[in-house]
Design a protein around this nucleic acid. Sequence first.
DNA 1: AACATGTGTTAACGAGTGTTAACCGGTTAC
DNA 2: GTAACCGGTTAACACTCGTTAACACATGTT
Lengths: 225, 225
Amino acid sequence: MSNPVKILLAEDEPALGQIVKESLETRNFEVILCENGIEAYESYLKNKPELLVLDIMMPKKDGFTLAEEIRKKDMHIPIIFLTAKSQTKDVVNGFQLGGNDYLKKPFSMEELIVRIHALLNRSQKQQKDNIILGEFTFNYTKQLLIDEEEQQSLTHRETELLYHLIQKQNEVLDRSEILKKLWGDDDFFNARSMDVFITKLRKKLKKDQNIQIINVRGLGYKLIC
Amino acid sequence: MSNPVKILLAEDEPALGQIVKESLETRNFEVILCENGIEAYESYLKNKPELLVLDIMMPKKDGFTLAEEIRKKDMHIPIIFLTAKSQTKDVVNGFQLGGNDYLKKPFSMEELIVRIHALLNRSQKQQKDNIILGEFTFNYTKQLLIDEEEQQSLTHRETELLYHLIQKQNEVLDRSEILKKLWGDDDFFNARSMDVFITKLRKKLKKDQNIQIINVRGLGYKLIC
DNA sequence: AACATGTGTTAACGAGTGTTAACCGGTTAC
DNA sequence: GTAACCGGTTAACACTCGTTAACACATGTT
């Protein structure tokens, strides 16, 4: 395994917080425990966790408010709410703030762990694999471009580039932005190198005429399909 | 805001259906919940929703069959499938008629909402595409001007300029406004550059004599057709 | 160690796109 | 009427990007 997944846990009741923390740590998660919403927000900024487990009822700042603030910084981080109340209304309220899942207290550790795994798998994998692109299916982790007839393998650079193009499908992907992200710097040579990869991708995508990588002079590229 | 987007939700498990329905309603969608495929098809005919969220495993008529039937009526309506883990790939890969996505159960509300917005945006963007202009069909994202005989490709600048002219069809498009929008500044050189593009567009549009870009001295241009 | 293979970078030339320049005609203001 | 102005058109130009191939480097194989 690579380095452990960082989880931010906000829970005001120390006994419960400690038990959950330790229990998650035995499963190879790194857990940062905070006792109220304000502390949790600061810790979020500092530690950049991959997933949040937030109690709703907390002193100083409740879990909903906290989630709302954090969502402004990160649209996609998975959030699990812990709630003592069992009414749908609160749950719905939580979803509205971009919560991904919720658990009613009292809950079992098993339940929590299942949900954590479910959300982590999704945020990492599912969105990147088996993306349908015209005739093709693009698999990011396997670096493959599949159609009925054949299966083309892509190099790492091709994969990354195509992935970013797909993320901005039908819009312009900024040249400079992608150069900085994949090559680390927007200079002359990297730019020429990128042109070469665009050519390679066009070649591999040419089977489906409806898919095209259009250049927008001075701005970047647009993947249409 | 205009009137809410109507979504047809077909889900046989009442508890899940209800929570998704309510959750979507708090996001200003209008949701029609159906408990099986037959009911859903009737509701589709009656209510004309803009988007479908279909569970695949349903009693009486499964989501896949339902989608096939609805596709015969509407080639373009966006469909999101909800699938249990085991089915996903084959079923959805086999179903490649445009505007589809799928979510594995269990899914989070946030994911569903992100995908709904993505598909709705796409279908809205398609309104920019295939605009009929006299003899021609103008496709914004593909940067094409099509008639029966041929297919002319436009550059990015030509496309943007024509698009804005079309938006103000038969009215005057202000020179200064368009210069600021496309060139960033209304100065002498940009103005001359724009004149060149007007010439180019006129050339590409000359096949249909009824379409004309008329200059309104001191104010701007007027696209008549 | 020698070789083959795969991946990404650099080089060279050609094509496409947008800008600038030059020349022209028509309109407006004095 | 004529000078100033605005826009039309064409061509030259500069710059960006496309494409191919040669090259460099790393990794794996015998």
